[in-house]
């Protein structure tokens, strides 16, 4: 039984069958041609198109990401620039204020100095006028004294005594 099986196996399974080869070849070629036209063409082109679609959406997503990153970077730059601007403005303001204060202080000091000088001037003038008035007064007194002397007696000693006492009087009074 086993040997018959082996003989059958060797005899039949490996027998060349030209008819089967012929039909297999013909059928396979026909199937290949039909499927190539009917199925593989549309399926593969659809798959390729989808692959391309996926690739392009990935590309687009990356592009969008890059764009948004660029925008973010730009925004950051702008922000930091604005920060710097604000800093600069504040610093400038401070400097200006400082300068203004210094100027004002100087001006005030000048003004006060001027006022003091003016006051000094007016004091000086007042003093001089007072001296003038005093001098006139003294001259008047001297003239009146001389008149008095002349009127009373023209005694020389007397006169000397009178004048001396008068001058003494004046200088002690003035001091």
């Amino acid at each position: 039984m086993l040997t018959s099986g082996v003989v059958l196996l060797a005899g039949s399974l490996l027998t060349p069958n030209p008819g089967l080869i012929f039909w297999t070849a013909v059928t396979f070629v026909i199937v290949l041609v039909i499927l190539r036209k009917v199925a593989w063409g549309p399926i593969i082109s659809a798959l390729e198109e989808r692959e391309k679609g996926i690739q392009s959406s990935i590309d687009r997503a990356y592009q969008a990401k890059e764009e948004s990153e660029a925008i973010l970077r730009k925004n950051r730059e702008l922000l930091s620039k604005a920060d710097a601007d604000a800093d600069r403005i504040i610093r400038e303001g401070k400097e200006y204020a400082e300068k203004l204060r210094a100027e004002l202080t100087e001006k005030a000091q000048d003004e006060s100095k001027k006022m003091i000088a003016a006051a000094m001037d007016s004091i000086e003038q007042e003093k001089r006028r007072a001296l003038d008035v005093l001098r006139n007064e003294v001259a008047d007194l001297a003239v009146k004294g001389a008149e008095k002397i002349i009127r009373t007696a023209l005694d020389a000693d007397m006169q000397k005594k009178i004048v001396n006492s008068m001058i003494q009087d004046l200088s002690s009074k003035r001091n």
Partner: peptide, 9 residues
């Protein structure tokens, strides 16, 4: 495959 192909088309 003609059915599948026409679906894809």
């Amino acid at each position: 495959f003609s059915i599948v192909g026409s679906k894809y088309k």
